[in-house]
Structure formats: C-alpha cells, structure tokens
C-alpha cells in the first residue's frame, strides 16, 4: 500500500467503477431509446387513436396490457443491471473482484440544481406562453427540452464530482441539443423521439468509447 494514502481518491475510484467500462452508459442509452419510442408512439395521433379504440373495445385487457408494458420496462431495466453484473464478473472484472455500486451516485446538490433548472425553464416557458409569445404546443416541447437539459446538468455534476472527464462533453452536448428541441417546431410525440435520439446517440458514443478503452487496457494487462 502507498505510504501516502489518498483515501478520498480510493472512494472516488470505487464510485467511478460502475461508469468506467461504459456498460452503464449503453444501458441508460438503450432505456432512453425504448422509453422515447414508447412515448413517441403513445402521444402520436396514431397512438392516441389506437389506445382510445382499444379502450372502447376491450377496456380491461387494454389496461392490463398497459400495466404489463410498464412492468416489462421495469423488468428490462433491472434485468439489464444483472446482465451487466454478469458480463463484468465473467469478462471484464474477472481478476479485479466485484462491487455492488451505491444506489445513489449523484451528489444531492447536483439533483437539486437539475431540479431547479427544470423548474425555472418550465416557469419561463409558461410565462412566455401565457403572454402569447409562443404557441401552446411549445409548453409541451419545453417539458421535453427541460428534462433533457436537467439530464445534461446531472451528467455534468457527475463528471465533476466523480472526476469522470467523459461525462463533461456528454452533459454539455446532450443538454444543449435537448435545449435546441424547444426551438424546433415539432409535435409533442416528435419531441420525445428527438430527446431519445439525442441521449441514445450521446450515451452510445460515450459507452462505446469507454468500453473500447477498457478492452484496450485489458489487452495491455493480459499481453504485457
């Protein structure tokens, strides 16, 4: 053990572990995609018509199916965590040992900041719409854009508190592009799709980059 012990770094190093190999990014990106595709369909004219028709024809079955879809989404989210744990155990962390990550990885101040920015953007948007400065659909778009900006702030905060540099561009690019969604005259369902495309792409790039680095360092360890 090093004589000059940097215990703060030891804690950070362990906290970073869940994000270091990029698998968590790929998982969150995939969940973003599934969620946004579902929301885009559900809030589209076709989706609403289909849902209304299904409700009229088979009310109980439709509601049970809807609950089933939500249940499946949650199962997939937890299932993918187990899959990641297995991939790490059998391929990536074979020699290094295993950890169970903390249930919270974001510092409380980051969550508070992200929530505050979300609220401010929403109030600003509501004020603009109420003054007649923008069309009514804009407030719905703002909901999506503000969620994306808040997600960007969360990644920025995580990057800064965990000293994980790749989350800084992830937060900035994802947050800014999400903000741009507000200024593009899209329908609510299309904005959902936009948000999904932005965050899935950003997290996919980040995840693949980190995974490649992990594989390269594994190769170096195994082949000197």
């Amino acid at each position: 053990m090093d004589d000059r012990l940097d215990f703060e770094e030891l804690t950070l190093q362990t906290r970073r572990l869940d994000f270091e190999d990029g698998l968590t990014d790929l998982q969150v990106g995939a969940l973003f995609l599934v969620m946004s595709l579902g929301a885009a369909f559900f809030f589209s004219t076709a989706g609403i018509t289909w849902f209304a028709r299904a409700l009229i024809l088979q009310r109980e079955i439709t509601l049970v199916a809807l609950a089933g879809i939500f249940g499946c989404f949650i199962l997939v989210a937890f299932g993918s965590r187990r899959l990641i744990a297995r991939v790490r155990r059998e391929y990536l962390w074979k020699e290094r040992g295993e950890i169970v990550p903390l249930p919270w990885q974001v510092e409380p101040w980051v969550n508070v900041l992200a929530a505050a920015v979300f609220m401010i953007l929403m109030m600003l948007g509501l004020w603009v719409v109420l003054r007649g400065g923008s069309e009514n659909e804009a407030i719905l778009r703002l909901l999506i854009a503000a969620s994306g900006v808040a997600t960007g702030i969360t990644y920025l905060g995580m990057g800064s508190s965990l000293r994980l540099n790749r989350y800084l561009p992830v937060g900035i690019v994802g947050g800014l592009l999400s903000g741009v969604l507000f200024f593009i005259p899209l329908a609510f369902s299309e904005s959902w799709l936009g948000l999904g495309v932005i965050w899935t792409t950003v997290l996919l790039i980040s995840g693949l980059y980190a995974l490649r680095r992990t594989r390269l360092s594994m190769f170096e360890v195994n082949h000197g």
Partner: peptide, 19 residues
C-alpha cells in the same frame, strides 16, 4: 474508504484496491 464508495465489495476487490 473503498467501502464508502460502494454498497458492498468482495474480498478480491478489496485486496486489489487497497494493495
């Protein structure tokens, strides 16, 4: 310090992380 950064860790991880 290592354990503070996670929910739990196995013996092998603690060995490697703390040296």
């Amino acid at each position: 310090a290592v354990l503070a950064g996670c929910e739990s860790a196995d013996f092998t991880y603690l060995l490697n992380a703390t040296e």
